[in-house]
Design a protein around this nucleic acid. Structure first.
Length: 639
RNA sequence: GCCGGAGUAGCUCAGCUGGCAGAGCACCUCUCUUGUAAAGAGGAUGCCGUGGGUUCGAGUCCCACCUCCGGCUCCA
């Protein structure tokens, strides 16, 4: 048979030759360094046979940054970890150990608790295995045989995996350790030049909290020590962008143990919060939304009607009033908006009706789930509910998606879209879900938005289009969401009078585009590394009078900059120190004002170090262009 | 909520085997009057997360709780 090499030459091989055979045919060095073969674009274990006509390319230890090459390295590292743990902890049961984004993990059930301090000794054992040399071999066996084998070894998790595995069962063995595994794996442990165990965590078997909690050991591995060092260095730098750290440094907000998960917004943080609120109000008004305000607390009966009492009660803060009544603080605005819509007879002429409200919501999140601004109990969404007819759904979804695109473009954020379908605890019939999911999916496709499907990730009342972004440390967070709902209006008996003088069911689109303002500001802080763009910056301009004699002129200059968030730094520090302070506080512009300056000539320093000289008039003109909202400019959001 | 780790000055952190609570930055005072990323001198700063226990004596050892951090689960 023939395979095609990257230079388009053909390599003649005996029938049934494996990737490794092909590498040997090319050269001994390649055979030694190869870690994977890419056959017609998909990666394959070197031990598996090639097929006639395949286009092949080898990945070697030199492809040290290739995701597939790292994946196989880390997958094999996970197996070494399991081998080491089994040797060090007799009686341990092994579960699963895949490679992940930045490393790998393996889940174990330990006979006794394991602590972080134990990692050093385990890591040492893994490194010993690498030094000793390990080679992987692959075999395929029948399901029954595999089952017997793992039963005999006392590995119940592996037995369960055999029972639920699809396709053929393959095993990989290194040293005296054999694992159920689809592969692929390295030939041997030599390419693993740097390995580090990074953490310990509890993790539920198969991700279900009803199952046993296993102990997960995380690690990472690279083809060189330099790559590992660079990775650790990147982590260190990412930590400096962490919004929780920057939030304190920049005096934006803080948390207090008397109200876990609820930020205290400081004056500077509130400037950013209010700018986003202004943006929300201005754009909503332009796009035909009306703003409303509905109560924060409601009697339990409302939540029973909406379905929250059944589906969301654990996440609500309850207020018992006497023996009879229980109130709950709202975790969402929708039920209130349903009551508002239902407070009057509605005609088809009233629709679509777009209610916007950014009320404080409270969700009693699990203590362990709280996370800075990105996971809070006090949530403020840029929320709205669009009440419309069935015929209006398409146009309204289009409007939401266009709005969403404009907003994210303004911040230079590039979120990933997820289409979340019916969950296990859904309300309503499959027919209704078919319709709603179809509408959302068609909207995504109309706008040619790439998305992944989050099967079962939808809300209990409807499917969602969600937008996800990644934080400084690589964690994914959901921001905006667009949800199509026919459950809730049905439950509240909401209808409108049509042109045919008959009542028709109302549809509701729930949408929050920035998501929660708290989370959005957290993500923005990391996105900008704390150096907010001019229009969001808490302090936009700081004037530094060189000496005492310049203070008066500096104050006069500040007054000339009416409408700009400007400060005069009259502290008794050297100019150098005050420049440094302005830089550390990431203020967009620092203006040094001394004997050489006048309204005709200002020394402007931009954050980061660039310096220019501008007249006051030119400076003001420049600032006006930096703000989409100030100086009476038309908003830059166009659609 | 679950597994693991941590809580010492406003911030970052040191404090050994139980024996008088520390440093740098920030803050305050004074001197200097400053020219684009840290002037100098002096000073104040603590419920050592909270509550209990062991001990002659606890920041240090033990128990419980709270909060935070890394994960899991859940979620905007």
């Amino acid at each position: 048979m023939n395979v095609v090499l990257p230079d388009n030459s053909k390599l003649e091989l005996p029938e049934g030759s494996t990737g490794l055979d092909a590498a040997r045919a090319i050269g001994p060095k390649l055979a030694e360094q190869a870690v994977l073969v890419r056959a017609n674009g998909s990666v394959q274990d070197l031990r598996l046979p090639l097929r006639d006509g395949q286009q092949i390319r080898f990945l070697t230890t030199r492809d040290s940054a290739d995701p597939d090459a790292l994946y196989v390295l880390r997958h094999s590292s996970a197996h070494l970890l399991a081998e080491a743990v089994r040797r060090l902890y007799p009686g341990v049961k092994i579960a699963i150990g895949p490679p992940v984004e930045n490393g790998f993990y393996y889940d174990f059930e330990f006979p006794e608790p394991v602590h972080e301090g134990d990692l050093a000794k385990i890591e040492e054992e893994v490194k010993r295995e690498i030094a000793e040399g390990r080679e992987w071999s692959r075999e395929e066996i029948s399901r029954d045989e595999a089952r017997k084998r793992f039963e005999a070894e006392g590995e119940p998790y592996k037995v369960e995996l055999v029972d639920t595995a699809e396709g053929d069962i393959s095993l990989y063995t290194q040293g005296d350790f054999t694992d159920l595994c689809r592969g692929p794996h390295l030939q041997n442990a030599q390419p693993i030049k740097a390995l580090k165990l990074t953490g310990l965590a509890g993790a539920y078997w198969r991700g279900d909290e009803k199952n046993t909690q296993l102990t997960r050991i995380y690690g990472t591995a690279f083809y060189s020590q330099a790559d590992l060092d660079a990775y650790l260095e990147r982590l260190e730098q990412a930590r400096a962008r962490d919004h929780r750290k920057l939030g304190v440094q920049l005096d934006l907000f803080h948390f207090d143990e008397h109200s876990p998960g609820s930020p205290f917004w400081h004056p500077k943080g509130m400037v950013i919060f209010n700018e986003l609120e202004d943006l929300r109000r201005r754009e909503n008004a332009r796009r035909g939304y009306v703003e409303v305000k509905t109560p924060l607390i409601y009697d339990k009966t409302l939540w029973q009607t909406s379905g929250h009492w059944e589906k969301f009660r654990e996440n609500m803060f309850l207020i018992p009033l006497g023996d009879e009544h229980i109130f709950a603080i709202k975790p969402m605005n929708c039920p209130g908006h349903m009551l508002l819509f239902g407070s009057d007879l509605r005609s088809y002429r009233d629709l679509p009706l777009r209610y916007a409200e950014a009320a404080p919501l409270h969700r009693n999140e699990l203590a362990g789930a709280l996370h800075g601004l990105t996971r809070v109990r006090h949530v403020t969404q840029d929320d709205a509910h669009i009440f419309c007819t069935r015929e209006q759904i398409t146009e309204e979804l289009d409007g939401c998606i266009a709005y969403l695109r404009d907003l994210y473009a303004l911040f230079g954020l590039e979120p990933r879209a997820e289409f979340s379908t019916r969950p296990d605890n859904k309300l309503g019939t499959d027919d209704e879900w078919d319709f709603s999911e179809g509408e959302l999916q068609k909207a995504l496709e109309r706008h040619e938005i790439a998305y992944v499907v989050g099967a079962g990730e939808g809300s209990f009342y409807g499917p969602k289009i969600d937008l996800h972004v990644t934080d400084a440390l690589g964690r994914s967070w959901q921001l905006g969401t667009i949800q199509l709902d026919r459950q809730m209006p049905q439950r509240f008996g909401l209808t409108y009078m049509g042109a045919d003088n008959a009542e028709h069911p109302v549809f509701v689109i729930h949408r929050a585009l920035l998501g929660s303002l708290e989370r959005f500001i957290g993500i923005l802080t990391e996105h900008y590394g704390g150096a907010f763009p001019y229009w969001l910056a808490p302090v936009q301009v700081r004037i530094l009078p060189v000496g005492e004699s310049h203070r008066e002129a500096a104050q006069a200059l500040a007054e000339q900059l009416a409408g700009v968030r400007v400060e005069v730094d009259e502290s008794d520090e050297t100019v150098g120190k005050r420049i440094r302070n302005a830089e550390v506080e990431k203020i967009p512009f620092a203006v040094v004002y001394g004997d050489k300056e006048s309204d005709e000539s200002l020394a402007i320093r931009e954050h980061g170090g660039g310096q220019t000289t501008l007249s006051l008039a030119d400076f003001r003109a420049k600032l006006a262009t930096l703000s989409p909202w100030q100086a009476g400019a038309e908003p830059s959001l166009t659609s």
